[in-house]
Every structure is written in C-alpha cells, then in structure tokens.
Amino acid sequence: MRLTAISQSNYTGFLLKRPFALLVPALLLSLAACSSTSQTGNNGSASSAGSSGGPAGWAAENRTLSANKNTFVAQVSERHAIPRSHIEQLLATATVDDRVIRLMTPKGSGGRVTRAWQSYRSRFVEPIRLRKGTAFWNANRQTLNRAEQTYGVPAAIVAAIIGVETVYGEQTGSFRVLDTLYTLGFNHPEPNRPEKSQMFRNQLAALLDLDYRDKVDANSTTGSFAGAIGLPQFMPVSIEHYAVDGDNDGHIDLRNSTKDAIMSVANYLAKHGWRAGEPVFAPVTLPAGAASLVDGGLEPSMSWSQLQSRGASLRAGSSGGHWQNGKEIGVIDLRDEVRGSNEYRTATRNFFAITKYNRSYFYAASVADLAYGLASRQRSSGYQVTMPY
C-alpha cells in the first residue's frame, strides 16, 4: 500500500520511486489504509472489526496525536482501548534508527523533481519482473482467480502491484517497523513539515493496536524504511482496514502468506473504487493539444461527451464501457523531461484506484503496463485472462 505527505497505504513505494515519479503537490492527509471498517466473511474479512459503513482507512485514522510521548500514550490507549502499560512496554524497546533518518532526509536543494517517465517505467516493466511475475502467476493461479472473482480486480493487476512493490517478496525490507515508525513519528528529519511526523504517529498507533490484538508482532516485524510491511507493502493502517485472511488460517501474514497478500491487494483496490470489467485506460484517440485536457488530479474529472467535444474518438474496433457514463475518465500526462516527450493517456476510474495505492501517475501507469505484459504472456500460453486495457 502510498501517499503524498500524505496518503498512505503505500507510502514506501512513493518514497522509493520518488526520484522519477510524477508527484502530486497537494499534501492531502488521506492515507489509504487503516483500522476500523469491517469487511465480511472468511475470504473478505479485514483484519480489524469495526462498525460496517463507518469511515475506513486514513479517513478513520487521521487524527491528531501528540508529539509529547506521555500524552501520545494516553491518546493511543483511549483511541484503541489498549492498556497504557502495554504501549509503554513496547515504546520502551523502540530506538531511533539513524539509517531511517538518513534515507528520509530530502536530498539536494528541495527544488522541483525532474520527471522522467521512460526511466521510471523501465525500472518496473522489465525482463526480471516479467519472468518472475509469470512464475508467480503460474504458482498462484487459483488464488489470483479467486481474488478476481471475489473483488473484480484482474489477476494481472494484483500480480503487477506485488511485482512493483517487492519483486514478488524478494525486497520486503529489513528495518524493524516499530523503530521506523517511532523514529519518523518523533524524530522526523523535516520538522518544518509537522503533517509528516503526525502521519507516522498515526501509523505507530495502528501498529501498537495490531500488536495488542495479536495481529502483528511489533517486536519482530520488519519492513521498509518507511514502515511498510510484507509482499504488498501495506502500512499498519492499511493492515487494520484492508488486509485479508486469504488462506483462512485465522491469521493475516502479509510477509509469509502469498494468499493473504493477493487477497489483500485486491480488497484494497476494490475498497478504493475499482470497477470490475473496466479497463485501466480507455481505448481513445486523443486530439492534438491533449495537454490542455490534463488537470493533474487523482480523481476522474471528465465525461466521454466532454472529451468527444474536444476532438477525441473511440479507436477503431474498440467497444465502450461504463467509463462512457458520467465523469469517469481523465487525461493524464506521462512527462519525460529528460527526453523532452509527453505521453498522454485516457485514464478510467480504475487507473485512479491504483493511485490510491501510490499517489503517482508514473506508479499507476507502470503497474498497468507491467500487468499488460504479464497478461499477454498468459494469453500466449493459452490462458484466457483479463487484459488490464
């Protein structure tokens, strides 16, 4: 699971890919992954039970937590109904990790980031991930099919996200998550950006809650230098709200259970607006001057009729879909400032659902392109799979 300072689930991916990503400047504290919505049943149950229909993810967890540690303990104890002694015992073992501070310290002058789409894409849509993603799909076909049937998210998209995030579990991170979140919550290297430390204190609160309820062992769990965990790199808030017991063993383990990871990614996207049966990109030919159609947002803002009135047309041989009804599409710009090029695509609501995992056009487009490559390989092997676009 990512953010902008921040929007979460997968803040780690945002950080790791930041040098080339198309970043959204607005600091929207709307993390996508937290603690108190209940989903249902064994195959669809989230790790945390709350009142159905209530706020989920960051909408539920983005609340003020004090930078004073004693006050923080009291607030977390009240919010999650955790004994203060339990919180104090865990925090007593937490240490400031200088490596995390170093990695999270902004580099350079803090000026504008150069956007280089082709360089970014080539890091993820490449032979190793295509090969390992094909092996992952072949080994987990039944679970990927079940995820698609349950949540409507194509197997290719789920496989691609896990590939982009951790190369199918090879790069899940070795930082102790308790230390990471403690460090960034109380010693963030950007003291002039208090919303960042606030976000990490909320993530730390979620980790403490998960530990108390025996869902995550805060003493031993490791992850990225931003605190993301397991194959899909979920932040603790995402684990609370969107993680799924995919193998029905009564425990959610995103590091060691591939089934849990697959079902959790699909559930996350479904809860963030994924529409079953719709492509990530609409089969549209855009007019000259497409740059004027780009608004840079993270929600679809145009209707098909509006886009047609500006000169767009359906590609020959293509069929329409739900994206043609209402404001369901948006034109995105994959800018490469190094090469002096722009690539414009017509994104559907499903593209924007992927940006809730990581608030970057580059990230979401790379996931879609890797998914297309993986699905194409499956089709060439005789399998009838859903193409992402």
Rank of each mutant, 00 (worst) to 15 (best):
Ala147Ser: 12
Gly152Leu: 02
Ala156Glu: 03
Thr180Val: 11
Tyr168Gln: 15
Thr166Gly: 05
Thr150Asn: 00
Leu178Gly: 13
Ala155Cys: 00
Leu144His: 05
Gly173Lys: 00
Asn187His: 11
Asp179Leu: 11
Val158Met: 05
Ala155Arg: 09
Phe136His: 06
Asn145Val: 05
Leu181Met: 03
Val167Lys: 11
Arg141Leu: 09
Gly169Tyr: 10
Thr134Pro: 06
Phe136Met: 09
Gln142Ile: 04
Arg176Ala: 11
Tyr151Ile: 05
Gly163Ala: 06
Ser174Asn: 15
Pro154Ser: 03
Asp179Lys: 10
Leu181Ala: 10
Glu148Val: 01
Gly169Pro: 01
Asn140Thr: 11
Ala139Glu: 14
Tyr168Gly: 07
Thr134Gly: 12
Trp137Asn: 12
Val177Ala: 04
Gly163Trp: 01
Gly169Leu: 13
Phe175Ala: 07
Asn138Glu: 15
Trp137Leu: 11
Glu165Leu: 01
Ser174Glu: 15
Ile157His: 06
Trp137His: 13
Ala139Cys: 13
Gln149Lys: 14
Thr150Arg: 00
Ile161Lys: 02
Arg146Trp: 03
Ala159Gly: 13
Val167Tyr: 10
Leu181Asp: 02
Asn145Glu: 14
Phe186Asp: 02
Gly185Pro: 14
Thr150Pro: 01
Thr134Asp: 14
Glu148Thr: 00
Gln142Phe: 01
Gly169Asn: 06
Leu144Met: 06
Arg141Phe: 01
Ile161Asn: 04
Thr166Ala: 05
Glu170Val: 07
Leu144Val: 04
Thr143Gly: 12
Glu148Met: 01
Gln142Ala: 09
Asn140Pro: 04
Ile162Val: 13
Tyr168Pro: 06
Val177His: 00
Leu184Gln: 08
Glu165Asp: 12
Val158Gly: 09
Tyr182Gly: 06
Ile161Val: 08
Val158Trp: 03
Phe136Trp: 07
Leu184Tyr: 02
Tyr182Cys: 11
Gln142Leu: 07
Gln171Met: 10
